[in-house]
């Protein structure tokens, strides 16, 4: 299966076999194009996807050591995401499949993330999933392919956005999450950093499993402004403490809400799984591991090459659907919004 992903700022393609072997996983990042603007610019992203998707697909086939005729089917992200970019990958996938006269599948990008733990770890259904990235923060009970029970989502910003925006305020390179983590890693006394800034604990004591990150983001910005001198500089030790306190607060919020989800789950999951870019953060992972072990569940997170946007997860989601007999017509639409739970069929109990 060839998988193509172009929904944000990474042009990616991958070849995966139905026994979960990743033959290639090529990712071309547009970081350089977006860097001057401090964030992803949709029109720049769409232009860059068109420019590179052909080369990325070629490279994916070459690294996999396969030719066009070896492909059994083609999958491409059909949404949700930046629509201009999604269309580039979608049309590329459709054209390849049509020419080869092979089946085509338009894949939900979120489903790619949601099913990626089955590609990396062979996790069995049902499992509790924290999908946490720059664009999404959701808790899902993954019951089967196409069966996602949404238990919680963010009411404002995504967790990754909170990381990235704070990093941006500190003039760190984008995407800021990993750089902020590096900065926080220099903190020698986490307990006093936490006490010093006393960041809010969002939705503490509130019912449900939803998230909120905008208050935390604003609080950090205000603390940072207070630490910044009139000439626009901040001492490294202050920045380190603030980064560590923020990382601790985000990890704590994620794990607190996930704990509620585990307590209220309609059926007991077989594992706790984290996917998406923020799942690569060490502090987040540590908090979730602790939570899982308290709940007596194994914890798994795909390796970071499968956590950030990639083509392998799109190919794999395509394989999961294809095995169940689904293929799509050539008229599949690109969708800017596509909630994972919209086609959820009530399973008989």
């Amino acid at each position: 299966m060839l998988g193509i992903e172009t929904s944000c700022d990474e042009t990616a393609a991958s070849v995966v076999t139905d026994d979960a072997r990743i033959l290639s996983n090529v990712i071309y990042s547009q970081l350089v194009q977006h860097a001057p603007h401090g964030g992803v610019v949709p029109e720049i992203a769409a232009r860059a996807h068109l420019e590179s998707v052909g080369r990325v697909v070629d490279e994916a086939l070459k690294q996999a050591g396969v030719t066009w005729s070896d492909l059994s089917a083609v999958s491409a992200t059909a949404g949700p995401g930046l629509i201009g970019g999604v269309m580039v990958g979608l049309m590329t996938g459709k054209a390849i499949a049509a020419h080869l006269d092979k089946p085509f599948l338009g894949i939900n990008h979120l489903e790619g993330h949601a099913l990626s733990p089955r590609l990396s770890h062979g996790v069995e259904f049902p499992y509790m999933l924290l999908l946490v990235s720059g664009g999404h923060t959701q808790i899902l009970l993954v019951e089967d392919v196409g069966q996602y029970r949404l238990l919680g989502t963010t009411v404002d910003d995504a967790a990754g956005e909170c990381f990235d925006k704070t990093a941006k305020l500190l003039s760190l390179p984008q995407p800021g999450g990993p750089h902020l983590e590096k900065l926080a890693g220099k903190c020698t006394d986490l307990a006093s950093a936490i006490a010093r800034f006393d960041l809010p604990r969002p939705l503490l004591g509130k019912k449900g499993c939803d998230f909120s990150f905008s208050g935390l983001k604003t609080a950090v910005r205000e603390k940072l402004e207070a630490l910044t001198t009139p000439d626009g500089t901040v001492k490294e030790s202050d920045a380190v403490d603030l980064a560590a306190a923020l990382q601790h607060a985000i990890a704590g919020h994620l794990s607190a809400r996930l704990k509620k989800a585990l307590e209220s789950a309609p059926q007991k999951p077989k594992a706790l799984v984290a996917a998406g870019g923020v799942a690569a953060n060490g502090a987040v992972r540590a908090a979730l591991e602790k939570l899982a072990s308290e709940a007596g569940l194994p914890f798994m997170a795909p390796p970071s090459s499968l956590c950030t946007d990639n083509g392998a997860m799109i190919a794999w989601a395509g394989i999961e659907h294809f095995r169940r007999g689904r293929t799509d017509g050539m008229d599949v639409a690109a969708r800017p919004r596509w909630p994972l739970d919209e086609n959820r069929v009530k399973l008989s109990t």
Binding site: G54, G89, A95, I96, H99
Partner: peptide, 19 residues
């Protein structure tokens, strides 16, 4: 239109590439 252009170009480029 930017989007229209890319729909046609992505399709033709891929057809040309695979053939």
């Amino acid at each position: 239109t930017f989007t229209g252009l890319r729909v046609g170009l992505a399709t033709v480029r891929a057809l040309s590439q695979v053939s």
